[in-house]
Nucleic acid binder design. Structure first.
Lengths: 266, 266
DNA sequence: GACTCTGGTGTTAATTTAACATCTGCGACG
DNA sequence: CGTCGCAGATGTTAAATTAACACCAGAGTC
């Protein structure tokens, strides 16, 4: 408690974010860690570590248990909103750019709570006027100030890990809509099926697909050749599939047997 | 730890159930209590009280927080499987008896996770052969040994508070069935609508109603003139409503404007 | 009768938490 | 320009909770 003065004096405010990042990295690397261990690592009291861990656990990055914390199983970690936002940004941007070619002024579209859909949302200002419905809070934040976009927020139970509105209220709201095109993404797919590990999310995505004339699936190559517990829909249910350019050629060929496939140019 | 010998010696085994009952009563009366307080009351160690409280909380009877436990809000408490089993047994039995008149040999029926449906399950051996599907574990236990009843268990995520299988797997299983008659109950209704406070349950009941040619609602009078957060279905969606004889005559008349109503004789 | 086995309980030490205390910027205000 | 108070982050302390182990009584086995 005395050898810490040097650390504290350099910039006493706002170190919290950095410390939490350091904690997260350490735990993800080691699989788990005790509170005392992390206090040692960060040079801060055990109490403060606990406060950090509470926050990180609430955000869905780590899992807390008596004796310390552990990293989330990868499926959970990767479905976390914060994590996803930083993964494959270039591929997602390219996919979104390609998807934009299917958006025309005057259309109504539905976006799910995926980072790919968010990337698309950021481009939608280019083809106004539009009507856009989504349950993804980040997309809502992006779209709310765009001129000539009629934004319909789909409400529901707020989920902190997804930063989105889910549950039955969401399902009912989606079921009452019919749009021209739905753009969705998901966390896992192979050449036959799309999957997701969370049943709540599956139900929302299914409802969204049902509510559209046209269904477009946005998938960056990191999701390919993976499965998850719950089946979402067969690939043939989508009218079009947009993938990024690092998707294996063989996979693309396989997919072309099932539906239209666009490879988004970088 | 020494003045307790008398208590321990009278019958050292199996006192756990009684003690937990005493704890539950005390907490429900007082609204809340501390672990130390309950240790004093029951004459066991704080550790043992904690173990009891863990179990009671897991069963959904009490809510645990740091510093003690509190009673569940009444809506939660009343939707608890254990509680419901002991409420209005006579009315439920009479309703079940009446409902049985709509069951004929050879039919396929669907039962939800209600005590009324359980009461009906207990009578089904009288009109075999039957095909019975349910997601309620207690009903499964009742039916599994009945001769000439083909029992279809509807699986899903197990919910300890309901003692039933719910969630998406359950929904999908129900959607794949079509039965002659569904018997359901719910926790609240007025003369126009039926309600339930839990969205998961609402979805399951709705799916069950969809899967049936014939929909029968079983309601004892304690559920009348109450509402809950989520709407389940309008009264007109049910083909028949069976109530107990202590339902107010005016209410029965109102309901008769909307659908067929049977008042079950005691 | 001695043995094991199991389930319930008590004891202890470590962990976690709530509540309070302290410190540090930072803006308002005189 | 000082200082007042406020808000946010952190440390301190005492109490609550827990895991792990120890203990005991009854049921069954040999």
């Amino acid at each position: 408690m005395l050898g810490r003065v040097t650390e504290k004096s350099d910039k006493s405010a706002g170190q919290r974010a950095g410390r939490q990042q350091r904690i997260t990295d350490y735990v993800v690397n080691n699989g788990s860690a005790s509170a005392a261990e992390l206090a040692e690592l960060t040079g801060v009291s055990v109490m403060t570590v606990h406060r950090d861990l509470d926050e990180l656990a609430r955000r869905g990055l780590l899992r807390k248990f008596r004796g310390g914390v552990s990293a989330q199983p990868s499926t959970v970690f990767e479905s976390n909103s914060e994590y996803r936002l930083n993964a494959n940004v270039d591929a997602k941007a390219a996919i979104a750019r390609q998807a934009l070619t299917y958006v025309e002024p005057g259309m109504s579209i539905l976006l799910d709570d995926s980072t790919s859909a968010l990337a698309l949302a950021k481009l939608l200002g280019e083809v106004t006027p539009l009507t856009v419905a989504t349950n993804y809070l980040r997309a809502i934040d992006v779209l709310k100030d765009v001129e000539d976009v009629r934004l319909i927020a789909i409400g529901g139970d707020y989920s902190p890990t997804h930063d989105a509105f889910l549950g039955m209220p969401c399902l009912e709201a989606v079921e009452r809509l019919t749009v021209d095109t739905t753009f969705v993404s998901t966390s896992a797919m192979n050449t036959e099926l799309t999957f997701h590990q969370e049943p709540e999310i599956v139900m929302v995505k299914r409802a969204m697909l049902q509510s559209a004339q046209n269904r477009v699936l946005l998938m960056d190559s990191s999701k390919m050749a993976r499965t998850a517990l719950h089946r979402l829909a067969p690939v043939t249910d989508y009218h079009r599939l947009i993938v990024d350019s690092s998707t294996p050629e063989a996979t693309v060929e396989e997919l072309r047997n099932r539906t239209e496939v666009d490879v988004a140019p970088l």
